[in-house]
Simulated assay, not measured.
Amino acid sequence: MEKVIISGFGGQGVLFTGKLLAFTGMVTGKHVSWIPSYGPEMRGGTANCSVIISEKEITSPIVNQCTTLLALNSPSLEKFQDSVETNGKILFDGSMIQQMKPEGLPVEWLAINTKPLADELGTNSLLNMILLGAFIKETTILSIDDLYKGMEEMIGNKKPERLKLNKKALEIGFQWKERTNAYV
């Protein structure tokens, strides 16, 4: 079972990322839940969502302790880092967040340097997809092909150019370790 909290500012694609993750889990035959949470502000306010993907029935959709946190900004990292289970993972945008792992925090701390990765795409608007690709690489609940399939079904033919760019961002995120080493 994977319990994920995704958090950032409104407009960063936090809710879309969670919805895509849950939808992909559903189309691959898993049990899922997705609970969005956001303030009255649209862009610039805070937004987060929790997603559970499981092979077994989910008894409660509430995520108090997650296995993975995807943080797109500093306030989100600070707010949710203590909600990650022991030996869980925190993936965050290391280009935007310059924070050291708190001493004694028993989690895997993965700063994804998204800036050079986003530069490959020519846009900074897909940092959420880069982090989602890195998440897929670092966990085993879904494959990258599952995510491509879920995205194709969720977006469909509505925005084919956006679909292609999102897939590229996922691929870049999935290869983040190899690509980031090239920039060191």
Rank of each mutant, 00 (worst) to 15 (best):
V4M: 12
M26T: 11
N73I: 01
G150A: 12
Y183I: 14
E138I: 05
T59L: 15
S33V: 08
K137G: 06
S95Y: 07
T24S: 07
K158M: 13
Y183H: 13
N128H: 12
K168T: 13
E153G: 02
I35M: 14
P75T: 05
V32R: 02
G11S: 10
L20I: 12
C66E: 04
G94E: 11
F92D: 04
T123F: 04
W109R: 09
I35D: 01
D93E: 11
L163G: 09
E171G: 04
P116A: 08
A71L: 06
D82G: 06
L165V: 13
M129N: 11
L131W: 06
Q99C: 00
P36I: 06
T140P: 00
M42S: 11
I62A: 11
G39I: 08
A169M: 07
P160D: 09
L105I: 08
F16T: 14
I144N: 04
K159Q: 14
I35W: 03
K158N: 13
L15F: 01
T86K: 15
I6H: 02
L72R: 04
R179M: 14
G39K: 02
E120C: 09
K56D: 15
S125I: 14
K89L: 15
T86G: 04
I172H: 01
L131V: 08
L21Q: 04
I141C: 10
K89T: 14
P116R: 04
M154Y: 15
L131H: 07
L117G: 09
Q99N: 06
E55L: 07
T68M: 07
C66I: 01
L142G: 11
P160S: 10
P61I: 09
L105V: 08
K30N: 12
A111T: 03
F16K: 10
S125E: 14
K167E: 13
F9L: 12
G18T: 05
V184A: 14
I97N: 01
